[in-house]
């Protein structure tokens, strides 16, 4: 079983600051991390490898520093890593990103056929969740998004649980296929010591555009991206309302006064609305 996991390096959105004057990102001092969903995807691939045997590869597109997320994946238990890195990839939207990743996946597959591709449900920076299904369309393999559990794997098909808005669907799909992973699927385990050593010495395979084989440069990067970011702005502020004043008791009294007309909405637990 050969599983390839696509892993993205992202800025840690918890600590991102926006310059309120210019509405631009202040990336200074913002750490880069592995997209959290991708960590769960690697973990799940490693779990399947333990159970069914095989190999886990990871693939990332990004600047040379993105090597860090490949090392992180090796720590979790991946076997090998590929980084595609080239100025020509810069400025890619999801269509151009899925094109570049697909070209790399084809190259990986020609050396060692791929049974399953895992992606995160979405990346926490761009946050679109569009790259995974895009890759599946391009490779003409079935995509199954929002997966919370992989229940059965055979050499021909997998059975999965797909999260829906209200509940889930139990799905069977043929291999090869592409799966996007939800966080609930597993807990990230502590990296065993030998993996950490392996991560330190790991050298990912790095490819530039020319090394990817036949690539249509017009479909890459900014040039290959139908969407453009028009403008950035601060989220609209809503008009503030009424501040109540006085002692806690006085404020509560005022509030109760206001809520009188909404009285029908309140009821004691167990009782009917009054």
């Amino acid at each position: 079983m050969h599983i390839v996991v696509c892993v993205k390096q992202v800025p840690d959105t918890k600590v991102i600051k926006i310059n309120p004057k210019t509405n631009t990102l202040d990336r200074r001092g913002v750490p880069s991390i592995m997209n959290p969903y991708d960590a769960h995807a690697v973990q799940e691939a490693v779990r399947l490898k333990r159970e069914y045997g095989g190999k886990v590869s990871v693939l990332s597109m990004g600047p040379p520093q993105a090597e860090a997320v490949i090392k992180k994946s090796i720590e979790i238990g991946a076997d090998e890593g590929y980084l595609i890195s080239d100025r020509a990839f810069a400025g890619a939207d999801t269509l151009a990103t899925s094109y570049a990743l697909t070209k790399a996946l084809e190259k990986i597959s020609s050396a060692s056929p791929i049974d399953m591709i895992f992606c995160g449900k979405h990346a926490i920076d761009g946050d679109t969740g569009q790259v995974g299904p895009g890759i599946a369309s391009r490779l003409d393999i079935p995509p199954v998004t929002n997966i919370t559990s992989i229940t059965k794997v055979t050499k021909d098909y997998v059975e999965l649980q797909r999260k829906l808005q209200d509940g889930y669907a139990h799905i069977r799909t043929t291999l090869p296929c592409l799966i996007t992973i939800e966080k609930e699927i597993n807990e990230i385990e502590y990296a065993p010591f030998p993996n950490m050593l392996k991560a330190v010495s790991c050298q990912p395979v790095v490819w530039n555009v020319d090394q990817l084989g036949e690539v249509d440069r017009k479909q890459l990067g900014l040039k290959g991206s139908p969407t453009v970011v028009g403008k950035m702005f601060a989220p609209p502020k809503q008009e503030g309302g009424h501040r109540l004043e006085g002692s806690p008791q006085e404020q509560v009294d005022q509030l109760l006064h206001v809520l009188q007309e909404k009285r029908h909405l309140f009821h004691k637990k167990g009782g009917a609305a009054v």
Binding site: D93, T94, G126, T128, G129, G134
Partner: peptide, 23 residues
């Protein structure tokens, strides 16, 4: 932007080679 809506939109965008703005 539901699980199914996002899924079909991403697939259509790639099929028609057009842009898709998310969420």
């Amino acid at each position: 932007a539901t699980p199914n809506g996002k899924d079909i939109a991403s697939a259509v965008a790639t099929d028609l080679k057009t842009g898709l703005t998310a969420d």
